Amino acid sequence: MRIGELAQRAGTSTRSLRYYEAQGLLQARRAANGHREYDESDLRLVQEIRSLLEIGFALEETRPFVECLRAGNSSGDACPASIEVYRRKLAELNAGIARLSEIRDRLAAQLETVSEEPCSR
């Protein structure tokens, strides 16, 4: 399939696909006329990348998942490097949630100390 069809089937843009290629995440084959050619395995790679990006992963964090698929695994998270990325991301999220909870608690405490009387000028 050509780049436009891959983009359409993967729900992304040709520009994104070219960017993934420039980053070494996607490897296009070239037809005799110079056009990029892709197959179903490339579609699977792009779907994996898009899925991870949608849940907050940075593009570089998708690399172990892509490499895992390229190695012939049926899932991008079947490899130890991918699992380690999951662990790091989960730790980041837990730290962020803890920080937000702390801020929420401080704001709630501050709000309790504020009087309900209207402000006089």
Score class of each variant (00 low, 15 high):
residue 42 D to H: 12
residue 63 R to Y: 05
residue 75 S to R: 15
residue 41 S to T: 14
residue 22 A to R: 09
residue 101 S to Q: 08
residue 42 D to G: 05
residue 105 D to L: 06
residue 50 R to A: 12
residue 29 R to G: 09
residue 37 E to F: 10
residue 56 G to F: 03
residue 86 Y to D: 14
residue 21 E to P: 08
residue 84 E to K: 08
residue 114 V to K: 14
residue 58 A to R: 15
residue 11 G to M: 04
residue 99 R to H: 14
residue 13 S to A: 05
residue 90 L to D: 11
residue 86 Y to E: 12
residue 92 E to Q: 15
residue 102 E to D: 15
residue 49 I to D: 04
residue 87 R to V: 06
residue 106 R to Y: 00
residue 83 I to D: 00
residue 108 A to C: 05
residue 53 L to H: 01
residue 32 A to L: 10
residue 44 R to G: 03
residue 40 E to W: 12
residue 56 G to K: 11
residue 28 A to W: 12
residue 39 D to Y: 05
residue 23 Q to K: 13
residue 6 L to Q: 04
residue 67 E to M: 09
residue 35 H to S: 08
residue 53 L to D: 00
residue 73 N to P: 02
residue 3 I to W: 08
residue 80 P to V: 03
residue 4 G to S: 10
residue 57 F to N: 05
residue 68 C to V: 06
residue 2 R to D: 07
residue 4 G to V: 13
residue 85 V to I: 14
residue 57 F to P: 06
residue 120 S to H: 03
residue 93 L to Q: 13
residue 30 R to A: 07
residue 21 E to N: 03
residue 83 I to N: 02
residue 56 G to A: 01
residue 42 D to T: 07
residue 11 G to V: 01
residue 9 R to F: 00
residue 51 S to C: 07
residue 103 I to A: 08
residue 107 L to A: 05
residue 42 D to I: 05
residue 66 V to M: 10
residue 18 R to A: 04
residue 92 E to V: 09
residue 25 L to C: 01
residue 5 E to D: 03
residue 31 A to D: 14
residue 52 L to R: 08
residue 67 E to T: 02
residue 114 V to L: 12
residue 50 R to Y: 06
residue 7 A to Y: 10
residue 43 L to V: 09
residue 25 L to S: 01
residue 94 N to D: 11
residue 84 E to A: 15
residue 72 G to Y: 11
residue 50 R to N: 11
residue 44 R to D: 12
residue 9 R to N: 00
residue 84 E to W: 11
residue 78 A to H: 05
residue 98 A to E: 15
residue 120 S to F: 01
residue 12 T to R: 13
residue 96 G to E: 13
residue 104 R to A: 00
residue 8 Q to G: 10
residue 40 E to Y: 02
residue 102 E to V: 04
residue 60 E to L: 04
residue 72 G to V: 05
residue 117 E to C: 04
residue 24 G to P: 06
residue 12 T to M: 14
residue 119 C to Q: 08
residue 113 T to M: 15
residue 84 E to T: 07
residue 89 K to I: 08
residue 106 R to Q: 00
residue 121 R to T: 07
residue 77 D to C: 07
residue 94 N to Y: 03
residue 87 R to D: 12
residue 49 I to H: 09
residue 86 Y to F: 15
residue 62 T to H: 01
residue 30 R to E: 00
residue 97 I to C: 13
residue 66 V to Y: 09
residue 32 A to N: 07
residue 98 A to P: 13
residue 10 A to D: 04
residue 55 I to K: 04
residue 51 S to N: 02
residue 73 N to L: 01
residue 69 L to S: 04
residue 33 N to C: 13
residue 66 V to S: 04
residue 13 S to D: 01
residue 90 L to P: 12
residue 14 T to N: 12
residue 86 Y to Q: 15
